[in-house]
Design a protein around this nucleic acid. Sequence first.
DNA 1: TATTGTTATACTCTATAACTATA
DNA 2: TATAGTTATAGAGTATAACAATA
Lengths: 137, 137
Amino acid sequence: MTTEVTPSLAEALVRLSHTVQHVFADVSREYGLTPQQAHALCRLVAGPVGMTELSRALHLEKSSLTGLVDRIEQRELVVRVRDGADRRACRIELTPVGNRLAWQTHEEVTRRLDEKLGALREPDRKRLTSAVMRVIG
Amino acid sequence: MTTEVTPSLAEALVRLSHTVQHVFADVSREYGLTPQQAHALCRLVAGPVGMTELSRALHLEKSSLTGLVDRIEQRELVVRVRDGADRRACRIELTPVGNRLAWQTHEEVTRRLDEKLGALREPDRKRLTSAVMRVIG
DNA sequence: TATTGTTATACTCTATAACTATA
DNA sequence: TATAGTTATAGAGTATAACAATA
């Protein structure tokens, strides 16, 4: 007889995050991206940002981001656009190809997660979404 | 005027999982571990497993796991124990030090997430937990 | 002085392909 | 033949420290 213990919500969230990361990794890979590259591209869909802000969003040191952006820029998925007002700064912008790839990745990740959420009804989804939003601020 | 769009539940879960990863990375680091090492140690708390099974649990190629285990074994957080029955195989076991570190990491991650979950009332917690359980199977 | 971003360096993580030893 | 695990290799991700240019 197996003793099945219901985990705490926090524990469940840790496991969820690993599951989501695996889905994210699988999808990224199918589109020829590393998970980190895909994460950066998806963040840029919301609009161009500077290196400092992007590094904060991705929870990375700025110096770590330099190489990451170098590689996706070499693949022409993003461009560094010099800031007109502040000559130290730049904005990282998606190219049309990068934008398409970001959306495709995002859609496919969402689709696979939705599959797993299949049985949930709309009122429950709404409630859960707002609960999650409260947690992540 | 900003147009605030409510994300889908799947999108909210992706964002939540990034938040959890950041907490996990912070805590791991404070305990002198990489997130990957911490993940492996936490998985081993459930009991010793072979390389093949551990690589499946961590969503890694076996060959990637070899180095990861090498490094935590050098730090005496785990040991490779040869399997008596199958001389090709081994079980990865936590040492007492590794076990303590795994628990500490787990507890601290849980504590920080619980802080963020503070805003959530019990009915929401229960519903969210069961939705999350459905996703992670 | 503070901030933006890069470079240099050293490790860690990861996959692919080829391999050894055992089943 | 199939499975458990390793090695060799190459590339990507990451942090720290030091730096250049600009504010």
